[in-house]
Design a protein around this nucleic acid. Structure first.
Lengths: 249, 249
DNA sequence: CGAGTTTTTGAATGGTCTCAACTGGAGTGG
DNA sequence: CCACTCCAGTTGAGACCATTCAAAAACTCG
């Protein structure tokens, strides 16, 4: 398949990219894609590694190709709140503002497809298909952030946990391009501490609620990180959303 | 009711618009502005009036000219959480998605400058200065939503109230194009109930925290709706935000 | 003034947090 | 193989903050 003459055998092409159909570049035509191909690069991060730090200038923007990234903010006394959770195809970075408004940390092994900030911002100005897709994605993220605000402001610890499991299940299913159905098994990408920071709880409360949901039969656990949802609708009921629960993918 | 004495007695022109420098149209040139002038219209709402309802199709988009609009979502059992608070120059509506994801309610007398949805969406495609400004505003709203998530997830009732007063003071000062300084007086646009829904609290807790802040001298009240902030920095201290960029290790 | 509404205040309850101890698995080395 | 540490997660007991329920006070507007 590969031409023997190739100089960079491991070079990934945009056309073959697994997240192409959902990422910021998904509306680009062949010519635009070829240009992106030429200027993109990849970077990987280990779990726990800092990708950008709050208040620090970041010189790149890009897409999550593999893994999960958390965005979080820390108050002066150390309290932490997660404000975003990025899955493959999500966009990372804040265009038109060099200073990162939040910490971005790899929660699993992460691979990013990145562009230098000035190059990407110039591209954005010249490429309507990029800009309109980014607007669309930003609007979706805003919707998701607002659903999350409802969770943080008004839901009980039990409801928060149930909502969280559904959110992860939906996102992982979307990444795998699979239907979400009863009996799904999933690997939780977050530690108890990360979940607590996501949900505005403490790790103890997270742990207690997981135990309670397990005893109630709403979830099944093989170990701390691997779970199974026997009945999606039942879990959604516990989550307290009025119907399908929002949480935009 | 309306006297038809003059041809265009109350016709407002975009060029004279008070929110022009901050609204979605702020990057438009004279020709674009003239076009907007021709297709825009105004609509007013009374306090408490519903502007759009969750799940309902909305046929317009636009800008808040006067007043304050709340965006909120209600859970199945009636718990309500505010997820957005719009001031003059803020954009209202969800481009590229006809179904409103949240309730929008006028909290004061409100005047909107609106465009029909199909017309505005077509305009967006053809007018880069509109689209890029909308992207910028959406990114800012996302940042604001994330700050708000920190408040909802990790702040105490006291900190929430202090943060809220600062937010309102900042937004009203920005609208008035005034500097925010010690001794500002402001009229709270929200009822205690609205504040509670904004902050993820109950009205009783809101009331108690206001009383406590008053007794502590952090705020002064003439009546339930009119207040004065004698010392911005002191209130910011109570709000718990790290003031100087958050570079603490 | 009285009726209705909003806001404030009080007392008791309860959900989540804090502090603390325990469990279990992974890795290390004797 | 066991003993040991280390770390993430779990469980328990008590404290505390915000909620709930209840009632009084203040304000609005006929």
């Amino acid at each position: 398949m590969k031409p023997a003459t190739t100089l960079r055998p491991e070079r990934e092409r945009c056309a073959d990219c697994l997240i192409r159909h959902r990422a910021v570049c998904s509306h680009c035509g062949p010519a635009e894609l070829e240009f992106l191909d030429a200027i993109k690069s990849y970077r990987t991060f280990k779990p726990g590694e800092e990708i950008t730090a709050m208040g620090q200038e970041t010189d790149f923007l890009g897409s999550v190709v593999n893994g999960v990234v958390s965005l979080s903010r820390i108050l002066a006394d150390g309290r932490r709140q997660m404000v975003g959770l990025l899955f493959p195809s999500d966009f990372i970075g804040r265009p038109m503002r060099a200073q990162a408004p939040f910490d971005a940390i790899a929660v699993t092994d992460v691979k990013l497809c990145i562009f230098s900030r000035p190059r990407f911002e110039a591209l954005l100005r010249d490429t309507p298909s990029l800009e309109s897709r980014l607007l669309e994605m930003t609007l979706d993220e805003l919707d998701a952030a607002r659903d999350w605000m409802v969770l943080l402001g008004r839901k009980t610890a039990r409801e928060k946990m149930a909502s969280f499991f559904l959110l992860v299940a939906r996102r992982l299913a979307a990444v795998a391009r699979a239907e979400l159905r009863d009996g799904v098994e999933l690997e939780l990408p977050l530690t108890r501490e990360d979940m607590a920071d996501f949900l505005g709880l403490t790790i103890e409360t997270v742990s207690r609620q997981i135990s309670a949901l397990r005893k109630a039969g709403a979830i099944e656990l093989t170990d701390a990180r691997h779970m199974r949802i026997p009945d999606i609708a039942a879990l959604a009921e516990i989550a307290g959303d009025d119907d399908d629960g929002g949480m935009i993918d």
